[in-house]
Design a protein around this nucleic acid. Structure first.
Lengths: 141, 141
DNA sequence: TGCTTGGTGTAGCCATTGCTTTATTTCCCC
DNA sequence: GGGGAAATAAAGCAATGGCTACACCAAGCA
């Protein structure tokens, strides 16, 4: 299984390839705010675990396994952002919270949160009702 | 600020005191599945950070700060368990997931999840509707 | 009283995870 | 072919927390 940091790298790589068609060491490093040498090292680890195929100085390609996992990770991240937004968490807390929890939820939990979001999406008035509850609770203090 | 591990200890200690009136090193160690020496070390750290007052061989007492934080941590844990249960996560995933995310959510997020739970509590039929969404989504596959 | 014993405390060590620094290598393009 | 940007290798460091081994205290019993 992948460590949290491996997931961060894989997520970033998937996104870069998705957006620009390729993922360079320096882009990955910049995105994650680490030094290039850290990226090289992690890429080698990801290669060893068959998430990607890596050729020194030549670049990398995600394997099917890597693509699949990358997509899941990116989707998961997005889902969690949507979830926190939906329930009313402040913008400035969302990124850090997602960053913190995304690596620690089972896919079962992810699926359930997905369902919950769909629940609110289907009937937007439900969010209004949620906000009413919020106002009630705030009034209690 | 407290590290994840410090929070685990504080949570455990608060619970022990709440249930038995005191918290012995060996009980804490057993609860967290670590060796007693690790507990002593952490207790000293918690003392240094004013979460508790510690006297060698004599036991410990939570300070007001420690009590307040301990209660928050225990409540937070419970809240997250309830949340995952409510949205339909399987029993066997809940503990590990909560264990994983509890240290990584802002109090803003916690409050919002609290509101969400209250939303379902007020009108239990909402959970039925949530389960209907779930069935729909499952049928799609 | 004094000894035994179980619970505690101390010190030093180890593992994991990642990151940095520094020095070197490779590629690409002029 | 040479220069510079990018990438890599090697070594080391820092934070976190856990463990082992051994020393120590204190309560209860003989």
């Amino acid at each position: 299984m992948a460590t949290p940091s491996m997931e961060d790298y894989l997520e970033r790589i998937y996104k870069l390839i998705d957006e620009k068609g390729y993922a360079r060491v320096s882009d990955i490093a910049e995105g994650l705010e680490v030094h290039p040498s850290s990226v090289t090292k992690m890429i080698q680890k990801l290669d060893k675990d068959n998430y990607l195929i890596y050729e020194k100085y030549r670049g990398l390609m995600l394997t099917p396994k890597g693509k699949k996992m990358g997509k899941r990770l990116v989707d998961r991240h997005q889902l969690l952002e949507n979830f926190l937004t939906t329930i009313g968490v402040q913008e400035d807390n969302i990124y850090k919270d997602v960053e913190g929890i995304e690596h620690h939820l089972s896919w079962d939990s992810i699926t359930c949160i997905e369902t919950l979001l769909e629940y609110f999406r289907r009937e937007p008035s439900r969010m209004d009702e949620l906000m009413n509850v919020r106002k009630d609770l705030e009034a209690d203090n």
